[in-house]
Design a protein around this nucleic acid. Structure first.
Lengths: 230, 230
DNA sequence: CATAGTTTCATACAACTGTTTGAATTGCAA
DNA sequence: TTGCAATTCAAACAGTTGTATGAAACTATG
């Protein structure tokens, strides 16, 4: 009958510190100090530092994915076919709210997962395949929503949606410096809508064209600027 | 009259190793072994590991920026006003070619800069402001190209273009696994065109609307799904 | 209470990190 | 060649890291 208290203290402290500073900047001694437990407790409860990180990644990943899937399910309703925008919203909404939303919606789990997706430390890299399966569910939903859309385009759309969301989270500072505050980063719902609309537009524009437009033809190559000297 | 040979050997080896494995996974001993020089040479020529990294970031950053600015200049020609697509192409093209293009176009400098933008290690974080100034030149070019476009939208477009490009470079593996090879990652020019078209579309769609569309109104908020349990 | 099992603790350990040292070697000018 | 500075080198240094140990403290059952 283990009293998981110490265990939980370690997990919470590690989640927070890793989310704040990144994996490279946090030592086990930092974690146990923040958790108020003994150094040896980590190896006692988790076996090793890597196993602690792996457990964090698994549990926090599940939590994030659950939110996304719940929104997806709600969007698809009974018909099993949702509006493409609703699907995209379910894909990027939870993470964006968890990282950039008002304080009461922020979650350390979301911050941690972003950190994990950025730094990709060895113990995490080994497990990451699980994420692929999760994203496949969204790809399937998108296929049902836009049955005429070229399949590669669907994946590109999904990929770009995640790209925009994640990069915005990571690079909040640069964007706000660059735009001198003109880009409002506090209004998450507007940001979500911006990303969703952009991706929906590129997906429907391509689907509307009937067949995938030129992606490898000479007219594309010809756009390439002349070789520039060194 | 210093014989910069050792110095250059260290820079090249460090650039390559950091680009391949990331900053966290490369030690000075790895670098000097790859360079075939003595361990103390690093501190002799650069003062410290951090200064070595900083110098790499500065020189390689300048090299990358020069390519982009050359393409931008060519796009703007004499008129000082370029097609928005050409501007975006100049923004994302060089890095994408340097990282995903055919072997003869790949550059360790581009790979290194991507790594630097991902991991953001302390010595680099201190200098990064230089990048903002560089991007401002592209923002200015975009403003000249689309004078009627809302300024915040311009920054968002620039930001998303970089987001798509960088994330594609970083996450090649996931996208290719997810799409089971359906997304052709070998054809860089097609990828560039895909990103450019997507961003141009979102910029012109918004500009065409006459004024920035609803970004903070209630109809946006209302799209938000109901609060989900758990 | 006694005792067996679990959990905590201070401490030590071995490995690795970036950095320094001081002697050896080199290259070049006088 | 001689002399002097610049450069290379092997070795050691001090600090930090994750992990291991064995004793102490706790918990709950008999």
């Amino acid at each position: 009958m283990p009293s998981d208290r110490t265990r939980a203290l370690i997990l919470d402290a590690a989640e927070r510190l890793y989310a704040e500073r990144g994996f490279g900047e946090v030592t086990l001694r930092d974690i146990v100090a923040a958790a108020g437990v003994n150094l040896a407790a980590v190896n006692y409860h988790f076996g090793s530092k890597d196993e602690l990180i792996a457990e964090l990644f698994v549990t926090r990943g599940i939590a994030t994915n659950r939110k996304r899937l719940a929104e997806l399910k709600e969007a698809e309703g009974n018909e099993g076919r949702a509006d493409i925008k609703a699907i995209l919203r379910a894909l990027v909404g939870p993470t964006l709210r968890g990282c950039l939303g008002p304080d009461n919606e922020q979650s350390t789990a979301a911050h941690f997962m972003i950190r994990a997706s950025i730094e990709s430390v060895p113990p995490i890299r080994r497990i990451k395949n699980r994420e692929i399966d999760h994203l496949r569910k969204f790809a399937a939903a998108m296929r049902r929503s836009l049955p005429d859309c070229d399949e590669a385009d669907l994946y590109w759309g999904l990929h770009f949606a995640l790209a925009m969301a994640h990069q915005t989270i990571r690079d909040t500072e640069r964007l706000s410096k660059l735009s001198e505050g003109k880009c409002n980063l506090d209004d998450v719902e507007a940001l979500i809508e911006r990303i969703v609309e952009a991706c929906a537009m590129m997906l429907t524009a391509r689907a509307g064209a009937g067949r995938p437009p030129a992606r490898n033809e000479t007219d594309v190559i010809s756009r390439r600027p002349e070789r520039l000297k060194g």
